[in-house]
Nucleic acid binder design. Structure first.
Lengths: 151, 151
DNA sequence: CTTGACCTTCCCATGATTGGAAGGATTACA
DNA sequence: TGTAATCCTTCCAATCATGGGAAGGTCAAG
């Protein structure tokens, strides 16, 4: 089967299949004489695995780990669970961040008349100089305080 | 004040200040003889505005709109509110997406022993070929039924 | 044999941000 | 005054996962 058919069958675009191959997430496939990539049902199965992991928001790096655990019959389920829970942690942190943004905005919007007049608490809050921006750099070289990702 | 001081005072990195200038979000500043950018308290105020909007997850494009509404004394608060609520919609959609991922994963992880044995519902679900990947592209332009998908 | 749909590789763009190199300017201190 | 440290400048690259598109080769049906 050609790459287009593998793409349709797996839900992973041809572009991404080539990309995954280029970064070593999936092995190089057999080629026809003329250079076309050839895929087996087994390959499609792997691509579907990847697709599902991607849909769950795993990074390519994590997916690589998951695929290798998948193929490892001696794996410890603990290793899989660890990756999954770590990812859950990241997801929940992000969710909380977004929820905070949304609730702040909703609160501001509630107090905004939303009419033709210029008075607007949303703009006012953005322009409010009281809000103290946290220091840009934690002033590096401090002991191991645990990096705060993002921003 | 130099860019570094403006950065410290506003919470926007010098890198980003230059970037915002390059894309026209903020106007080009005055320069010293030797080419150093010079910032006023007013500029810092604008940067703080931007910083706060960014913290609320607005895109640079939206921030540009907000800044221009900010400076427009004739603005209709409706216009600001529209941008804010639109953004809330995006945030909430993303939150729901992430929550779905997290809850699926948590459910799977709950059923995973997380021990040294290989049996793992997480991997099994990822490998589950029943889950149907939604079609990649709506597959436009095909006449009534193109080639047989060789499946 | 032509047509059109497929495939190949290669480069570019996204968004917001950081990192770094090369080199000039300013400041601090001995 | 010399010099080192710390700023500043511009420019280029990388991130992450993905899509767009060009230029050109291949394949199957008509």
């Amino acid at each position: 089967m050609n790459i287009g058919q593998a793409a349709a069958a797996s839900g992973v675009s041809a572009k991404m299949i080539r990309y995954y191959e280029s970064i070593g997430l999936i092995p190089r496939t057999v080629r026809t004489e003329s250079g076309y990539r050839v895929y087996s049902d087994r390959d499609v199965h792997t691509l579907r695995f990847i697709r599902r992991a991607r849909d769950l928001g795993f990074s390519v790096e994590q997916i690589a780990d998951l695929v290798s655990l998948w193929h490892d019959r001696e794996r410890a389920s603990k290793d899989v669970k660890t990756i999954a829970l770590e990812h859950v942690g990241v997801l929940e942190r992000k969710i909380r961040e977004l929820q905070e943004m949304a609730s702040t905005l909703k609160h501001l919007a509630t107090n905004c008349h939303g009419d033709a007049r210029p008075h607007c608490p949303i703009i006012e809050e953005l322009a409010n100089d009281e809000a103290v921006p946290p220091p840009l750099k934690p002033d590096a070289k401090f002991g191991p305080l645990g990096k705060s990702p993002a921003r």
